[in-house]
């Protein structure tokens, strides 16, 4: 009896080892929100068909948010607000209300370094143009009068502009909200080990299945295809803003898409800012805010926030260097 128990224990143990190393995730990738969105599910206790169905529901929610918040889509609700917001108050939608309200909170928190009303200045720069150019400085100065989050008139029912010509651009926050919502849909349907990655901004939820296994790599901002470094993360959200995503070079000067709401020109102090936070909306918006603040002011800001960490890459005397907040400093490793 005892002998067979020992043999049985050994057999079960060997099976246990095999299962541990065999996690085959189910992945779906789609083009949404002007980038790729990848949903990876590691949970093993549901059928493949059921997991794919739940992933489909999460994608539906992202599509729904995109239809409301994408200002490049002429038929989105935000485009309608941008066209008519100065003439009359637009009836509020729950998604739009949440995203705009959160934007206002982060604008106040970051003292205006994050501002969704930069839309009018962004239009001047037109980074999606085949032949982008530097706009006239007087035109930028004039348009800056339309950039101020305090000029939004917002309540739970209506949204409008206090000045005509204003434009909202939710590009630095809507993706984060969509990631949070996709993860919420997965959780509601019983998935507890997964990752949603939208163009490099991401959120993960984790069980013992994948705990301790994930490295989050930060792209090298200047050497294409190379990584700068990594940290380990089980659950949480990460977003990065970099000057290498959308840019053009004119007369040896790099003009990128992260504009300083106070000057109307690209913020020049950082190269890349990675924020780690509990939710993706906060990480997404703060990555832009801290990028605009610059490494010194940005680091002071992050150190004063609870549950927020950051890794900032910037140039000093022509050299690429990095700095990180207290909570992540010892956990960040350079590649190679």
């Amino acid at each position: 009896m005892k002998k067979s128990l020992i043999v049985l224990f050994l057999i079960l143990f060997s099976f246990q080892c095999q299962n541990y190393s065999k996690i085959i995730p189910i992945t779906q990738t789609r083009l949404l929100m002007d980038t790729f969105v990848q949903i990876v599910v590691y949970d093993q206790d549901k059928s493949k068909h059921e997991i794919n169905r739940i992933i489909g529901l999460a994608f539906d929610r992202i599509q729904q948010i995109d239809n409301i918040t994408n200002s490049y889509n002429d038929s989105s609700l935000i485009s309608f607000v941008n066209q008519n917001g100065a003439s009359y108050q637009i009836q509020m939608d729950s998604v739009l209300y949440h995203v705009v309200k959160e934007s206002q909170r982060i604008s106040t928190l970051s003292k205006g370094n994050f501002d969704i009303t930069t839309g009018a200045v962004k239009d001047l720069w037109d980074f999606n143009n085949d032949n982008p150019f530097v706009p006239d400085s007087t035109v930028i100065r004039k348009t800056l009068k339309l950039v101020d989050y305090k000029l939004l008139s917002i309540d739970s029912d209506y949204l409008g502009f206090k000045t005509s010509g204003m434009k909202i651009d939710l590009g630095a926050i809507a993706k984060g909200f969509a990631i949070d919502e996709a993860v919420r849909i997965l959780s509601v349907h019983g998935i507890h080990d997964a990752m949603v990655n939208a163009g490099g901004d991401l959120k993960t939820i984790c069980t013992n299945l994948t705990a301790g296994k994930r490295k989050v790599w930060i792209n090298h901002p200047r050497n294409t295809g190379e990584m700068f470094g990594f940290f380990r993360m089980d659950s949480g959200s990460v977003a990065t803003s970099g000057d290498y995503e959308r840019f053009f070079i004119k007369d040896s000067i790099r003009y990128h898409h992260i504009l300083d709401p106070k000057t109307g020109y690209p913020a020049g102090k950082c190269i890349s800012v990675t924020i780690i936070a509990k939710n993706a909306l906060t990480a997404d918006a703060l990555a832009t805010a801290v990028f605009v603040m610059g490494p010194e002011q940005g680091m002071i800001f992050v150190e004063n926030q609870a549950f927020i960490e950051c890794i900032i890459l910037y140039k000093k005397d022509g050299k690429l260097i990095w700095t990180a907040s207290t909570g992540i400093k010892d956990k960040f490793y350079l590649a190679n």
Binding site: I23, I24, P25, T27, T29, R30, L31, D34, T35, F36, Q38, V40, M195, N197, G199, G200, D201, L202, T204, T210, K213, R214, K215, V216, W217, I218, N219, M227, F230, V238, A239, T240, G242, E245, T274
Partner: peptide, 27 residues
Amino acid sequence: EIIVCVPNKIIIAIESKNNQYFDVITQ
């Protein structure tokens, strides 16, 4: 790792079963 062409609506990704599957790139 993934390459995306948004205008031409193309996604290129690599599928493999090695342990790097847990990793992700933020950019």
